[in-house]
Design a protein around this nucleic acid. Structure first.
Lengths: 194, 194, 194, 194
DNA sequence: ACGGCCGGGACTTCCCGTTGGT
DNA sequence: ACCAACGGGAAGTCCCGGCCGT
């Protein structure tokens, strides 16, 4: 799509992937371009031909990370429905592997402080996720609202599980988040039934 | 009382309050001590007699901010119950005023990257909130889990509302989060009823 | 002939001449190929069909510059002997016009840091100069040594005259160098006489 | 002298010493600040509090290197006179160890391209050397000129010995330079005698 | 031969957290 | 408590040597 015009831009892709992981593990502000480029097998000087600024890279990473998440979501929904999605999202593995996990749970407050363009890009990608989840639910008047509520719960629970000290409590947070997500879905369906 | 241990200098209190706001509005990593001290009406050199490091200040701020939140929560629960809490938390005013708002919604992913001591302090304070909410709910087998689920939903929804671009969508996120929180609570109560 | 081996394109000759001047005026490391090519009336891309690398060009320039110097030396020796050579070499005009002057005085330390092939090429050309001067001297046991000593003095004096600040001192350096060169020659001759 | 005012500035001294070696071994233009700072055990960011620019550092290095050379010269003159100076200067050890050796022989053409301030600093230091050598010679009308001539010969011969390929020839250059230097001195003395 | 691109890396500016002298 | 300075290190601009498609 984007980088079809010029060269094959494998470097650009490598940079975005490397940065995307680094941002999720260390945060955006705490990640330096030099480290990212070095991890990508390149040097500082090779950055600016690809991106106008760090903010530009951030936007690209948000798009990339949520795009990949959308694909994973599609597969999970197809194979196991919402229940599988919830269990995979609020798993210990996902909690313990932030660098390859959900960008929202890793970066939401930092995304909120990004320029409007980045937030718009995030919003666009998020709505894809909302649409996918909404479509997987029994249709109600406001299945998009339900999807948003479920996503908020998943994001919040994963962040909380990562922030608290103590594995036992963290596991309980994951379980509580999963139960909460199920509640939201089930209550929306029971409304339809009534 | 918690922060009696050190000197209860007014300077120290002022630094913590100022930093606490700055962290919530700009993020921890993006906030410099020089700016914080300047805003507190002091200079750089006055910091280290009070705190051993920035990480130390962060821990103190987390305690202070969640302590204050606990007090507000108590008042809101007393006057209007959980419904009032939800509405106040997921209000446009709270969304638009991060610097004086919930530290969790502003900082959770950054707290997750802090040293164990800070995460432990956060955990302690969080459990106070959980206890308060749990006590306000109809008692069930796992009212703490419900409280955790509600908190996760509130945190996630507020972060999401701040991150998305467009007021209309952001308002919908707030509403969806509120509805989701109500669902979690109501379903836990209906379980009791059945 | 030396540089017949490659194509004797006029472009190649132009590049070498342009680079040769630029190197002498700005130094090798400080001279970029883009500037050289541009000054030669060509573009970047025309370089590599002619030379394998910048080091290759440097070698070629060393050969070209010393070859030209050898011709000038021959003429000067023929017309005015060593005294004319010394005066021309240590003239204000030569000092103030490095770009068309002696490559040794302009580049010796940089040549010393070049790859062996370049240093070999320099050595070959230098020995031509040594032979010419040696032949112009009264023959002694070690007229080549005397020629080397004279050349070292001329190179060193010209470099020194270019490096010092202040025209008056610089002129004195030139004069002192000339007098030193004459001393070397005269003493070698007096040895013969004795 | 210079850095007495502020702190002990051991860092500054370390930077100058490290840079001074690096410049002499690799040349000024070819030496990057990052490498120099890294070798000095510091990082990029620590450079500019000490020096306004790379050119500023170069000037400092020129002063430092020639200052040290002046001390060595004094010792050599005291212990063995000019003959000892010549032999030490045009020794294989000095030729093969440019990084700790004479800055003039390593850098003269690059110094000639530096801003006037650097050239002035070089000139000042050079005149110290000239004065020392001049004082060591039998006094003649122009013992400063003789000293300049000797220095030019030494500089040129060392550069030449480093630039030529082949140890045997390089050794001959050293010997020829030494013989030339002796000739200059002796002829200046015989003038007096006559 | 052209022109543009690629990655490397230079120089410089800015600000950070922290320390020490006053 | 002030404040200047230190060293660390990031962001950004620039240009270099080298390569390729046209």
């Amino acid at each position: 799509m984007r980088y079809e015009k010029g060269r094959k831009d494998s470097s650009r892709i490598k940079i975005v992937e490397t940065a995307s992981e680094r941002f999720r593990s260390d945060g955006i502000a705490a990640s330096g371009l030099a480290t990212i480029m070095s991890d990508a097998g390149l040097t500082n000087g090779a950055f600016y031909p690809h991106f106008a600024s760090k903010a530009d890279l951030v936007r690209e990473c948000v798009v990339q990370a949520l795009g990949a998440q959308s694909q994973q979501l599609q597969e999970a929904l197809a194979s196991g429905g919402m229940e599988a999605v919830i269990e995979a999202y609020l798993s210990a593995a996902h909690r313990d592997n932030a660098s390859k996990g959900c960008a929202s749970a890793a970066l939401l407050p930092e995304i909120a402080r990004q320029p409007a363009e980045t937030r718009q890009a995030y919003t666009d990608q998020l709505q894809t996720l909302v649409g996918q989840i909404s479509a997987a639910l029994v249709q109600t008047k406001d299945s998009q609202g339900v999807a948003l509520g479920v996503l908020a719960t998943l994001f919040g629970a994963l962040e909380l599980a990562r922030a608290v000290e103590g594995k036992e409590l963290s596991d309980r947070v994951l379980a509580a988040g999963a139960e909460a997500a199920r509640s939201i879905i089930q209550r929306s369906q029971s409304e339809v039934a009534s």
